[in-house]
Structures are given as structure tokens and as C-alpha cells.
Design a protein around this nucleic acid. Structure first.
Length: 273
DNA sequence: ATAGGCCTGACG
DNA sequence: CGTCAGGCCTAT
């Protein structure tokens, strides 16, 4: 569920709450979610680890531990984290429990179980192909128009390209549609057909959408909540996503939905060319 | 490039 | 019952 803005909100909260805290032990309740090393080794290695900080790359959370390890968590489609006092009842679908020395537990909850977690030497992302091949961060200073133009080389359809994490990191189905709408670009346009001025428009739209979503605490369409259980509010500013049949805010044409790259894609047939 | 698979849950 | 869902991997 969470895309870059939602994961970044959670990262900031985790960083504030967990920096300096200590994991006393970890319990893996759904071994399938641990992709490296074995779930037992993962549990053992996490025993008594200090947390130095929390970083993010695309949709991956990277928790920096003091015993020369990096704890990686990807929330998949429906994953969430929550920080609770020990003894509080655990929500349904709690699959990982990190016990902290201060009496709190960090819970990983995920109904659809599409998430994953791993424990690796810092920066060693060989075991997570998605991380190993990840593209540039679109909210970084260095993400210039030129960087975007390079990332969007080729002949794929632009929506597929935006969803491709090896081209640009962190964009998912909601934000791809919202960016393309604001840039006036049809999701099916081929990359080699997009002009330099359009790349500039798209670049500006990407930064605008991601920054606005961040300042609104992300999008909560069905179940996204942050570390404190709070939903975001950017969904009220969605202009196309899940608005099929509703009037375009600019031209009043009904918003349409079509399948692109296997995903529902919402667009205005008049404003997006 | 597309379909199907992984899962559970909400909704019509 | 069927369809859809914020992700991502595989096989064709």
C-alpha cells in the first residue's frame, strides 16, 4: 500500500522514536516474510541490538543497528508498523514482534503478507534484488530533469516506466496516476514519444505531488496509517486516482479507468494526451 | 508486454 | 458469488 511518501512518514517517526533504543529480542510469527537469512538466524542476530537510526530507499525501510547489521523492512501492499506498550493486545495479522528494552514493542502487521524483511551487513543488498537494482530517489536534490530523462529512456509506456523501481524509486500506482494527470501526459504514451518540455513538466509534477503528499501525511485510501495509527489526508487532493466517472476538475470530462501494466490507471481523456 | 501468482478483506 | 485492492516476482 505505501508508496514513497507514506514510507518516508513512517521512516521519520521511526527515526525519532527508535534512535538510541535497543531491541532485546525478536519474534518471527510468519517465517515466510524473512527472505534473508533463515528466520531462526534472523531472530538470533537481532537479540540485543542497538538502533542507530532509520533510513529509507524507495519503499524500503533500512534500520541501522549498532552491531554492524542493517534491518530491512518492505511493507508490501498492506504492511504497517506500530509501537505499543508491552502487554497491549496485538492486532490481527501481527507477524513480527521486536521487543525493545524500554518496555515497548514494535509490531509488523500485514493482512496480505506481501511484505518482506531481511537482515544484512550494512549496504549489502545482494539478497534483495529490488533494492540492489533500485533507481534514483525522486525527492533528492540530485534528481534533476536530466536524471529523469535518463531514467525514462527506451520505448516502454510511461506509466509502466514510472512504476519500474529500477528507473525511479518509490513511485506506485496512486502517485504515478496523479503525476501523469498533473503533467497532462496519457499513461499509455511511449517514452520515445515524450518531448523534452514534457519531461520537464513531468519532473515538476513528480516533485510537487510527492512533496504535497509528504506534507499531508500521505494518502489513506483504504488502510494506510502511520506509526501512531493516524491516516494521511492527501487522498482528498487526488485528482484522478479512484475517481472513475467523476468530473475532471479542469475540463469536467468524466475520469476514465483502464488497465496499464496490469494496474488500474485513472486519467482524463481530454487533459492527458 | 501481459497474465498469473502470492494473500486477506471489503464491497456489490 | 465475483471484483478489486497502495507491490512485486515469475513465466510465457
Amino acid at each position: 500500500m505505501p508508496e514513497l511518501p507514506e514510507v518516508e512518514i513512517i521512516r521519520r517517526q521511526l527515526h525519532g522514536e527508535l534512535t538510541g533504543a535497543r531491541i532485546t529480542r525478536c519474534e518471527v510469527l510468519l517465517p515466510r516474510l524473512v527472505t534473508h537469512p533463515s528466520p531462526r538466524t534472523y531472530e538470533r542476530a537481532l537479540t540485543d541490538s542497538g538502533i542507530r537510526g532509520v533510513n529509507r530507499r524507495g519503499k524500503y525501510l533500512l534500520i541501522d543497528l549498532d552491531d554492524h547489521l542493517e534491518l530491512i523492512i518492505h511493507l508490501g501492499m498492506t504492511g504497517s508498523l506500530s509501537l505499543v506498550s508491552r502487554g497491549e493486545e496485538r492486532p490481527r495479522h501481527t507477524h513480527l514482534v521486536f521487543y525493545l528494552a524500554d518496555g515497548r514493542d514494535l509490531l509488523y502487521v500485514d493482512p496480505r503478507t506481501f511484505g518482506e524483511t531481511a537482515l544484512v551487513p550494512p549496504g549489502d543488498h545482494r539478497f534483495l534484488r529490488g533494492l540492489h537494482t533500485i533507481g534514483p530517489e525522486p525527492i533528492d536534490e540530485g534528481f534533476t530533469c536530466d536524471v529523469l530523462a535518463c531514467a525514462l529512456a527506451g520505448s516502454a509506456r510511461v506509466k509502466s516506466a514510472l512504476l519500474d523501481q529500477s528507473r525511479v524509486a518509490g513511485i506506485g500506482n496512486i502517485y504515478a496516476d496523479e503525476m501523469l494527470y498533473r503533467a497532462g501526459i496519457h499513461p499509455c504514451r511511449r517514452l520515445d514519444d515524450i518531448t523534452p518540455p514534457e519531461i520537464e513538466l513531468l519532473h515538476a509534477s513528480m516533485r510537487e505531488v510527492l512533496n504535497q503528499a509528504l506534507s499531508q501525511g500521505g494518502s489513506s485510501v483504504s488502510d494506510y496509517v502511520d506509526l501512531e495509527g493516524e491516516p494521511g489526508t492527501f487522498q482528498s487532493m487526488h485528482r484522478v486516482y479512484r475517481r472513475e466517472g467523476e468530473a475532471c476538475l479542469v475540463c469536467c470530462e468524466p475520469i476514465r479507468r483502464m488497465r496499464v501494466a496490469g494496474r488500474s490507471s485513472y486519467y482524463c481523456p481530454h487533459c492527458q494526451r
